[in-house]
Design a protein around this nucleic acid. Structure first.
Lengths: 176, 176
DNA sequence: GACAAATCGCTGCCGAGGCAGTAATCTTAC
DNA sequence: GTAAGATTACTGCCTCGGCAGCGATTTGTC
């Protein structure tokens, strides 16, 4: 950012450089790392008219990890309303098609269309490349350690988010 | 989630459980860890009428890390337009006040108001507690390792995002 | 068989962040 | 001194994710 260049005031402004680490630093790093990964992915995917989440949904469908929008929401920890729009977009682009389930008429299966299957290899290449770029210099063991740490943080967070209401007034609706 | 309960179709749907790790796993973990931290923070801060970003801005101002909105944007890697709204909110709540700089009349100093200073200890306690909860079971060395890993990812991402245009048509404007 | 509960997909609505554009101001180069 | 460029703060505009609510449908219980 070309540090020294203002003569008068700005020098003082940039004096106190080191944050006191009050409690945001890990959060900041998480946010920046995620934003960097996402923006890199989005930048590479825009030529295909997709963003990271749309690619992820398509990939998980193609891999058989999920077959319906509800599945995708569970796997991706995603909102059902937003997922409807993502599926809309993928369907408009002809990458997949909706197909109502006959046994359970609430369910809509999401089948990857030939166009989607044709583009998936390129998309996968982009996904792995962007991630590999972000993890350049990481050994496999370091990647595993990072995943384990993040997993532990997630587990801790879910524990706390469950325990938040001691009386448990059931604001949204739980299982009795 | 009460696993087995549907008899017919859903059992097959949940069969293919393990994702093939095509390239999103680290991204997923990053997103979920960040979302869990953010939502926990937001949940604890809503009684004060603040969200995580507003708290972060107030804290960084009180700690002298930043004195203006532009400083906050640099430190927090945040959009200037969004920062204006955050400062608006904090000012409306009486937690800080704007004060035009006399030497450089473009600059608006952001001073933490007495009301903000009075509430900050409680807010800090919330921030550190939520983060400590997320990092429960982590040794200090593990936290440092996690920070180092995330920092390396960020550095890698910034390198790649800079290198993206080989011809470098200077879309926004760089320093020559 | 009837009814409550749960699930699925979908639609508005709201808040928040990123982007582009603007006016005012300051710095630098000529 | 003046013009060009940079910086600050601010304002719309757009997109996206989360939330609440809806109708349709299925399951489970009585």
């Amino acid at each position: 950012m070309s540090a020294v260049r203002r003569s008068t005031i700005k020098a003082e402004l940039h004096a106190a450089a080191h944050p006191p680490e009050g409690g945001l630093s890990v959060g900041h790093l998480l946010g920046r790392a995620r934003a960097s990964l996402l923006s890199g992915l989005d930048a590479q995917l825009t030529p295909f008219g997709l963003n990271a989440m749309q690619y992820a949904a398509l990939k998980y469908l193609a891999d058989g990890v999920a077959r319906t929008a509800a599945d995708l929401c569970r796997v991706l920890y995603y909102d059902t309303g937003s997922m409807t729009r993502i599926v809309d977009h993928l369907e408009e682009k002809g990458l997949l098609r909706r197909e109502r389930c006959r046994e359970d008429r609430r369910v809509v299966f999401l089948r990857v269309a030939p166009a989607g299957r044709a583009q998936l290899p390129r998309l996968r290449a982009i996904g792995t490349r962007v991630l590999d770029d972000m993890l350049a210099g990481f050994s496999a063991a370091e990647v595993e350690t990072l995943k384990r740490y993040l997993g532990r943080m997630i587990d801790n967070g879910e524990l706390k988010n469950r325990k938040i209401t001691p009386g448990d007034s059931l604001p949204h609706g739980r299982k009795p």
